[in-house]
């Protein structure tokens, strides 16, 4: 990820069935929003393993948003129920690691909520801009610590 100062590293995970469609709607409606974020589509918000988020912060993310379907609307019925528990636990954990928990944000965005997607992403980027770069960016690579790679196969 980019190390340049002043440029933020912001990741937005969107689930395929609601939030991604919402983001798409925001795009085709030509809604104004900052461009300093990268979006990753997953089939469901529950596919966003807590490890992905920790991995992102380790590698210099300044903020991570996970956007999924509203409760009751998940394409896989209960995926987002797991997501909301993970996110709440992750916030507690990140706080213990000394990170401001506001660097992690959960939003429910339906396929019709292009407006909401543009608003929450803008708000989030504004918030992270105020917080500045994550302190984990400065964690250097002493003793070859950068060598973690994603395991390919998963149980």
């Amino acid at each position: 990820m980019s190390e340049e100062n002043g440029k933020l590293n912001i990741l937005v995970f969107t689930c395929n069935w609601c939030a991604y469609a919402g983001a798409d709607l925001a795009g085709v409606s030509r809604l104004q929003m900052p461009t300093e974020f990268r979006q990753i589509r997953t089939m469901c918000s529950a596919r966003v393993d807590p490890e992905f988020i920790l991995y992102a912060f380790r590698n210099g993310a300044d903020g991570v948003m996970v956007a999924g379907c509203h409760p009751g609307d998940c394409h896989y019925i209960g995926g987002n129920y797991r997501t909301r528990r993970r996110m709440a636990l992750l916030k507690m954990l990140l706080q213990q690691f000394g990170l401001n928990p506001r660097r992690l944000r959960l939003e429910w965005v339906s396929a019709g909520e292009g407006q909401k997607f543009a608003r929450v992403v803008s708000e989030f980027i504004e918030e992270i801009r105020k917080l500045g770069p994550s302190p984990y960016r400065k964690q250097g690579a002493k003793h070859g610590q950068e060598n973690i790679t994603c395991p390919e196969k998963r149980g």
């Binding site: 490890e51 920790l54 991995y55 912060f57 380790r58 706080q95 213990q96 690691f97 000394g98 990170l99 401001n100 660097r103 917080l131 500045g132 994550s134 302190p135 984990y136 964690q139 610590q145 973690i148």
Partner: peptide, 13 residues
């Protein structure tokens, strides 16, 4: 050996 390895100090925690 965890991904974040150690506690840091963020702003406004």
């Amino acid at each position: 050996k965890s991904l974040l390895r150690k506690v840091v100090q963020d702003r406004e925690v």
